[in-house]
Design a protein around this nucleic acid. Sequence first.
DNA 1: CTAAACGTGTTGAGAGCTCAACTATTCCCG
DNA 2: CGGGAATAGTTGAGCTCTCAACACGTTTAG
Lengths: 164, 164
Amino acid sequence: MNETRWLDADEQQTWRSFLTATRLFFDRVDRQLQNGAGLPHAYYEILTRLSEAPDRTLRMSQLASTSLSSRSRLSHAVSRLEESGWVRRRPCPTDKRGQLAELTAEGFARLEAAAPGHVEEVRSSLFDVLTPEQQRSLREISDALSAHLSDSPLWPAVADRRQS
Amino acid sequence: MNETRWLDADEQQTWRSFLTATRLFFDRVDRQLQNGAGLPHAYYEILTRLSEAPDRTLRMSQLASTSLSSRSRLSHAVSRLEESGWVRRRPCPTDKRGQLAELTAEGFARLEAAAPGHVEEVRSSLFDVLTPEQQRSLREISDALSAHLSDSPLWPAVADRRQS
DNA sequence: CTAAACGTGTTGAGAGCTCAACTATTCCCG
DNA sequence: CGGGAATAGTTGAGCTCTCAACACGTTTAG
């Protein structure tokens, strides 16, 4: 291992501020959804991705990657969503290993009911706080990070993790 | 309730990209710490804040607010850290309700051992990916969000939550 | 001075997430 | 074709987090 490239004072500040901002922000989003719709944000995302898919149906693995979930997490989540009746599982006709997850009418209704409160929270806690210029910057920064992080695997490799 | 102010296409993109970036990034940070030091990031932060305090000691409530933790979470966390021997609890001399949390020598050593790997992850996954200009923007954006979010309470009010 | 309100910290139940192990199916290559 | 490797998804244990309820000390107002 080489010498550690420590953070200088400026970087420290940036890092802590970023940490604080994201924690506060996502806490609010999670909480709003939990209070307002009885749904954790991860579940809301799953329902959203399903709602946008053709036939409101996706393979589990597709759903896992688009909703940034591990397979395991998704599996647990869908089980719970199935118990609640928002999602239905069906075997995949073309691949006997596969499973399809389908958003039910009840699930869609639930999502529609939850959406306004959620969007309002995102708008008021994020967009309303930033200037248009800052919004553009945030977009660029996020794109850069996403691009970099999605194709640089952690360590050698991780077993049951993320995407296909 | 008023009409929902939905997100337009541009905002949608920004929002999703932000979501993706932060999820990927914090997943990596968490995982690096978990693998490299056997510590969740929240615990690392607690140890860090203690290490910076006078006598490496803080009141539980102080520690909760500086580490962005709820009281309850902190209480559980400190219990676990105490079992591991990284932290010690002592009654507060000036307020019989209070508790002081103190970082032990072992805890400090653990933190020192964990730090290089953690910093390297933050640097390579965050700072190395952004231009100096983007780093400045990120700082401004984060400051704006933090400022806004820390003094606008959620809903009417929330019981057992965050800071003093 | 006392009673109510408030502040500080803890606890236990319930939920979600991670990790590792496992089953079942499909792919690939000799 | 046959067998090993890769892929799809699930499961259960263990851990952390949240929420609500609680216990106890402190402050404040009548």
